[in-house]
């Protein structure tokens, strides 16, 4: 196995990167910066998945989240925000309530995590073939349902984005 000190350092580096980027998403005053910080957060999450020996999930995260969703979010940012004032385009409101939620949830997470036993780490194995077997075996019904959901989202996205013309429908 790998050296525990080195692997811990890699983990803390990945976790710090992810959380700092997420902090930028939460706190930046510029929504374009927020969008690119979301990009970095999702990238760091892919690293954490790889570190958890979820190789297929890391690749899927890169393809779907980093390659798809964050580009979609960037498009939405560019299309919607009046970018003439992008430095103040992401104003905040209800800051006190937000800070209260932040502290409460983070404290609850620390308390809950400290009560969880450390667990035994399973051996690192290639996961892709096993996940493929599971998807077409035990999980074949959710797999098919998800395909219907994707079709519905595709049609719904096209219908919504095209818009309703006049009052004729």
């Amino acid at each position: 196995m790998t050296d525990p000190v080195v692997s811990a350092m890699v983990f803390y580096a990945l976790a710090t990167f992810t959380l700092v980027a997420a902090g930028f998403v939460a706190l930046s005053n510029n929504i374009v910066h927020s969008a690119f910080a979301l990009f970095a957060t999702l990238f760091g999450m892919a690293g954490l998945y790889a570190f958890l020996s979820a190789d297929l999930l890391a690749i899927v995260q890169m393809l779907v989240y980093v390659g798809g969703i964050s580009v979609l979010v960037l498009f939405a940012v560019m299309l919607t925000s009046g970018l003439d004032d992008s430095r103040h385009s992401n104003s905040t409101t209800r800051l006190a309530g937000g800070i209260a939620v932040l502290l409460a949830v983070a404290a609850a997470a620390f308390v809950a995590a400290s009560a969880v036993p450390s667990g035994t780490e399973s051996a690192i194995t290639p996961m892709t073939a096993l996940i493929g077997d599971a998807l077409l075996g035990r999980f074949v019904l959710p797999f098919e349902v998800v395909s219907v959901v994707l079709l519905a989202a595709l049609l719904g996205g096209v219908t919504l984005a095209r818009g309703v013309k006049g009052g004729d429908r």
């Binding site: 525990p4 803390y12 997420a22 954490l48 502290l103 983070a106 995590a113 667990g119």
Partner: peptide, 17 residues
């Protein structure tokens, strides 16, 4: 060593943010 609690803390802070 990095165990389950560390990942849960990262996840919890992400949830809070």
């Amino acid at each position: 060593t990095v165990g389950l609690p560390q990942y849960l803390v990262v996840s919890g802070v992400l949830l809070a943010l």
